[in-house]
Simulated assay, not measured.
Amino acid sequence: MPVEPPPSRWAFDAHLAGSDPDDDLVALGADLEPGTVLAAYRQGLFPMPLGSARDPMGWWSPVHRGVLTLDRLVVSRSLRRACRDFEVRVDTAFAEVLDACADPRRPHGWIDRRIRTAYLHLHELGWAHSVETWRDGRLVGGLYGLALGGLFAGESMFHRERDASKVALVGLVDLLDDEHGEQRLVDVQWQTDHLASLGVREIGREEYLGRLPGLLAVPLPRGFAGP
């Protein structure tokens, strides 16, 4: 089971968003200790840098949240075929997946050293996980995020071969689809056209926050619960 870290000295409340109701940025500052990051997710926020390492950390709660319920995942015929071409593994190469997602050559990169250190620590404590796609012994795609009860808070994904990240998403949904599958939710932060094609939809901030307590009360899936 994940190890609960010491509680944070910071308090978060996404209901107390700024004066602009259309602003996804809710707070600035704090730290990235495990207890702080977990407290933020449990209140519907997540960290993302504003720019340089000299800037305070931004804490975000999108007004329009991208989410995926397991029954809405769209698996096309070609993606189903692709699933047979890769091996899916869980938590065998977390640091490698994180570093691939943080590759500075990727457009719109946001994963800096502070984020890397924080999520490696959360992985060591059993909260952060990777779902990986492999071919011929090579890591070719994957995703990572946090598992908190019935919520999987997805952070980023990458691919080095066609459909490798999509297969990782299919693998994640398969892992989550247990006797509690109807109660689980994958949070992708923001919807994109690519994610919408896979079944991601938008819900409002207040709806997301209203669902959080119930999600957090759901047992972890066995694949993330540890021995």
Results as ranks from 00 to 15, higher is better:
E182D: 15
E96M: 13
L195K: 02
W134V: 12
C101R: 00
S78A: 14
S8N: 09
F224Y: 08
D91G: 06
R106N: 07
V97E: 07
A153D: 07
G199F: 05
S165Q: 06
E155W: 07
A118T: 04
D99R: 13
W110E: 06
H194Q: 14
G126P: 01
D136P: 02
G141C: 13
A17S: 13
L175M: 04
R113L: 12
V186I: 09
D187P: 11
H108P: 01
I111V: 09
V88W: 14
D103R: 05
R222E: 15
S52M: 12
D193G: 11
D187A: 00
S19V: 13
E206D: 15
Y119V: 10
E155P: 10
F158Q: 05
G137A: 14
V173E: 04
D91Y: 04
W190M: 13
R114S: 12
A153W: 01
Y144A: 08
V88I: 15
R84G: 14
P56Q: 08
W59T: 03
L16S: 10
A225P: 00
W59R: 00
A95T: 15
F152Y: 15
T133P: 08
A40C: 06
T192P: 04
V218M: 06
M48S: 07
R113S: 11
R89F: 08
R211D: 06
R54S: 14
E124C: 10
E87I: 07
A82T: 13
W190H: 12
D99P: 03
L169K: 01
D187M: 02
D163V: 08
L98N: 03
H64E: 14
L68N: 09
A93R: 06
L32G: 02
L68W: 01
F94Y: 12
L120A: 13
R65Y: 07
D22P: 00
A147S: 15
W110Y: 05
D23M: 11
V188M: 09
R80A: 15
L98A: 10
H180C: 12
V26A: 10
E124D: 15
L25C: 02
D91P: 08
G126Y: 00
A93P: 02
E132A: 11
V75Y: 05
W127T: 09
W134I: 09
L220H: 14
H180D: 12
R135T: 10
E182Y: 02
R162S: 13
L146C: 08
G18S: 11
I115D: 02
A147W: 08
R116E: 11
L175K: 03
P219Q: 11
L220M: 14
D112W: 03
A30T: 02
S156H: 09
R205S: 01
H123E: 10
L125P: 00
S78I: 12
P213T: 07
R113D: 09
L50Y: 08
V67P: 00
E161H: 05
R205L: 02
E202T: 13
E33V: 09
M57T: 06
G154A: 15
M1R: 12
T69I: 11
G109I: 05
A14G: 07
A11I: 14
H123L: 07
R160G: 14
F158I: 10
V173R: 03
S130T: 09
E161P: 00
R77D: 13
L120G: 12
C101V: 06
L212E: 01
T133M: 10
L143A: 12
L216Y: 08
R105K: 14
G126M: 08
